[in-house]
Simulated assay, not measured.
Amino acid sequence: MAAQPLEARKGTIGSAEDRLRLPLYICLHLAGFVCSTMVLTWGLFVLFFMALGGFSLDGLMHQIHNLSSRYVAADRERIQSFKQIVAVAHLLVAGGLIVLRRHRILPADLNKGSTDHG
């Protein structure tokens, strides 16, 4: 859809397209917030393993190998316990990040209003 001049759009202010614009904008912003929080959470897990490995790539790979070899050798109950620990840790880290980034949940320019005063 090409951009229309303001004069051509004045009659469509209450249209369905205009009513959907704000909820879609908020949903897109929230999707971006959730995705960026997820990436930050994964990054903190990598940072944790980097710290365990002495902040070197060799140490990181050694820690990941140690974790994966224990996971492969574990029985069913131990694997289930490991999955629960990872899920709880992920939820705690994500929850902490959401609390720290709570000012980013809603778009910053949401309260500015419309610049169209016509």
Rank of each mutant, 00 (worst) to 15 (best):
A2D: 07
A3Q: 07
A3R: 09
P5N: 10
P5R: 04
L6A: 06
E7G: 13
A8F: 08
A8L: 11
R9E: 01
K10L: 13
G11Y: 07
A16L: 15
D18S: 14
D18G: 12
D18R: 15
R19H: 05
L20Q: 15
L22T: 15
L24Q: 12
L24T: 02
Y25I: 09
I26K: 07
I26R: 04
C27H: 11
L28P: 00
A31S: 08
F33V: 08
C35P: 02
C35M: 10
C35Q: 06
S36F: 10
T37D: 03
L40T: 09
L40R: 10
L40C: 08
L40E: 03
T41E: 00
T41C: 01
W42F: 09
L44G: 04
F45A: 05
F48D: 00
F49G: 05
F49P: 04
M50V: 06
M50I: 04
M50N: 03
L52C: 12
L52V: 13
G53T: 10
F55V: 09
S56N: 11
S56K: 11
D58R: 15
L60K: 08
M61V: 12
Q63W: 08
Q63A: 11
I64W: 02
H65Y: 10
H65M: 13
H65R: 14
N66W: 07
N66P: 05
S68Q: 12
Y71M: 13
Y71T: 08
V72A: 09
V72W: 06
A73D: 12
A73G: 10
A74K: 11
D75P: 09
D75A: 10
E77Q: 15
E77D: 15
E77R: 15
R78A: 12
R78Y: 02
I79A: 10
Q80V: 13
S81I: 07
K83M: 00
K83G: 00
K83F: 00
Q84M: 14
I85H: 08
A87M: 07
V88C: 00
A89L: 11
H90C: 02
H90G: 01
V93W: 01
V93K: 00
V93M: 04
V93D: 00
G95H: 07
V99A: 12
R102Q: 11
R102G: 01
R104V: 04
I105C: 02
A108T: 07
D109T: 07
D109H: 12
K112T: 05
T115A: 10
D116E: 12
H117C: 10
